[in-house]
Design a protein around this nucleic acid. Structure first.
Lengths: 126, 126
DNA sequence: CCAAGTGTATCGTTGTACTAATACAGTAAG
DNA sequence: CTTACTGTATTAGTACAACGATACACTTGG
């Protein structure tokens, strides 16, 4: 899962790490109860400091994707399909609000955004 | 135009300044050729360092909204309605691509985004 | 119980964004 | 020309995020 991680990328290491795991969970590749690599183990694999892995795990914990158990390990949280969907909707709403704020800042209206989104989505799934 | 500017806001001062002017231009309140306040003048008005105003003007220049003329002043660029629209479309597309990248990072799919966008827009313009 | 594993907490170094200070260079009206 | 205005460039200080180093505390299998 972690063949390529780029230390020179503008996106922080811990974000890259969290990102991989996040999508793996969201895609169902990692099921609830799965025991993730330990902090030191993953850090060693990635040639990264353990604290950086911890930061990634903490972010995933705040988002409700994993659970850190002191002395035991880090485990993927089991979430129902129902919950998964509502979480996706909540996440989407938050993203869209950010988008609208940014758009207002640039003088771009909502209709332009809808058109652009349809255009981008249409390209991917025609 | 600059009654309230917040030094304690998380958004940088120069972004706040650029934002006001940007929307004013996009909304047509400032027409092409209009001479903006000088760097020092605006800085004095806002109780801010001139270099901060310069940074705002530079950002607007990169985006093609204004033109800085050494020794003369800073002027609003005249842009045709056609160009304005295409610029808006370009800006919207860029924003949406960023949104999609962020969404992928979080495991949110495009359909969820479209639903969320429609929802948010529907609330504002029912 | 205890040893080897796990996460936790704290601190220091580094890099970068933001803001300011100050000296420089072009323009144009008188 | 001169002067009073414009933008330009360089530098410094501050704040904060990212990353790493190291010592601590909990859990579990033997």
């Amino acid at each position: 899962m972690f063949d390529k991680i780029d230390p020179r990328s503008p996106t922080p290491l811990y974000e890259q790490i969290a990102g991989r795991i996040r999508v793996a969970i969201a895609a169902g590749e990692l099921e609830g109860g799965h025991n993730l690599s330990s902090v030191r183990q993953l850090a060693s694999t990635l040639r990264v400091n353990p604290a950086t892995v911890v930061q990634a795990y903490r972010e995933l914990e705040r988002e409700g994707f994993v659970e850190l158990r002191h002395g035991a390990g880090t485990f993927v949280r089991g979430v129902s399909e129902q919950r998964k969907k509502s979480e996706r909707v909540r996440g989407a709403a938050q993203l869209v609000r950010g988008l609208l704020a940014e758009a207002a800042r640039l003088g771009v209206n909502g209709e332009d955004l809808r058109t652009a989104l349809d255009h981008e989505l249409g390209r991917k799934v025609p």
